[in-house]
Simulated scan of single mutants.
Amino acid sequence: MSQDVGAQAEIARFLQQLKWIVLALVALWMVGLLAPILTPFVLGALLGWMGDPLVDRLERAGRSRNVAVTLVFGLMTLLLVLALLILVPMLERQVRTLVETLPEYREWFVDTAVPWLEARTGLELSVWLDPERAVNWVREHWQQAGGVATSVAGYISRSGFAMVAWVVNLVLLPILTFYFLRDWDLLVERVAALVPRDHLDTVTRLARESNDVLGAFLRGQFVVMIALGAIYAIGLQLSGLKLGLLIGLIAGLISFIPYLGATTGIVLAVVAALVQAQGFDTRLLVLVGVVFTVGQLLESYVLTPRIVGDKIGLHPVAVIFAVMAGGQLFGFLGMLIALPAAAVINVLLRYAAERYRQSGLYMGAQPTPAIVLEPFAAERATTVEATPQPPLHKGPEA
């Protein structure tokens, strides 16, 4: 009878777990469908979560919630406006320089890069750069070209609606951020009220650890990205690279993916230096290498340890996989939430590993055996115990 009751309990537990798995899959499916309209909500929630600690600090200083939210929101807006006022003119000059030097890049690619690749690979790449050959290829594959043209026209028409959607998202973002800032504590309380009481301690612990991990990533990594972008941009600009500011900012902004930011920046900077010098300028190439070496050393030994710390605990391969998988599954929204989701999943996996080590499956049904000494050690211990010991000398008796 007890076995039947145990089997029924196991079946009920399995059905309950299956129900939660199905609900999770349905939620992911809904996220995939609603990804285009969820982006401003996710960004607004992230910005609200990042600003909530400062709002709470102002509240503890005696200000009301509305006043604190208004001050923090105004500060965030002011920082954004200052960044735009400083960066937009500089980037505009950099883009204009890039457009003006595009013929030089084309000439370098056709006259230098392609012959160098042909000499080392044995491939005939220059024939594909011949305009007459390209026209003949299109004439031979006009049907496929027509299909491609139709697809491109459809993409352009859809891009118009996408542009309108982006404008709407930009208008919605500050509004959503303000409301998330104002009601963040209320949202947390309502979610906490839904947690089953017998799981409240565990959920609270996991939520606190996830909050620490996300704080280390979102706040810390954001500061590291800005710092690296500034280091690369200023260093490359001082080294004499005309596009140094643009390349440095690009390298800094994508540095949240390990090694990708520095690798991309080095490749772009080397190509820009070769085109700018119309050949090998040893001094410029050395300065580019020094800038990225100093930036990587500062990131590894100063910025990341002091600002981010080791709370994230994600391997670089896991970070790259998370970003690529998020982009493949949910597009831009997936890339936006990939690393925060991976950090939370990492916390859950650590908790699952902890529970596994405490389970009967890991510990086994038998009690832990006593520690057995090595044979020679045990023999020596037995000999010592069997040998009569002389009494301790206590001095002459009184």
Rank of each mutant, 00 (worst) to 15 (best):
A381N: 02
L54K: 07
L102K: 01
V213T: 08
Q94H: 03
T387R: 11
L297H: 03
L238V: 12
V267T: 12
P40M: 03
G331F: 06
E100V: 05
A134E: 00
L268G: 10
I307Y: 06
G74K: 04
V99R: 13
I231V: 13
T177N: 00
R197D: 14
D198M: 07
G244I: 14
G248L: 01
V372W: 00
L84W: 15
L236A: 09
E100C: 00
L373V: 00
V319Y: 07
G220F: 00
Q16Y: 08
A343D: 01
A227S: 12
A353H: 13
E189D: 15
S300Y: 12
L123M: 13
S359R: 15
G309K: 02
G364W: 14
L243W: 12
F292W: 03
D198W: 11
M324I: 14
P396C: 12
L172Y: 04
M76V: 10
D183A: 05
L214G: 01
H141L: 03
L75P: 05
E132Y: 08
P375E: 03
V188Q: 15
W137H: 04
Q328I: 12
T202F: 09
L329E: 09
L361W: 15
V302F: 08
L187P: 02
L348M: 08
G51M: 10
Q276Y: 09
R306A: 10
V271G: 12
G244F: 07
G6Y: 11
V67W: 13
V88W: 12
G122D: 03
A341E: 02
A272L: 10
L297S: 11
L78C: 14
Q144T: 10
R57A: 10
R106S: 02
Q94A: 13
A277G: 03
L125P: 06
I175P: 01
V223Q: 07
L206I: 13
D111F: 01
R283V: 05
P316C: 09
G289S: 03
L173R: 00
P369Y: 03
V88Y: 06
G252R: 02
L194D: 14
A192N: 14
F376E: 08
A162V: 07
A35D: 07
L34T: 09
S64E: 04
I21K: 03
E209T: 11
V135D: 06
H393S: 09
M30R: 08
I312D: 01
D183W: 11
Q328N: 15
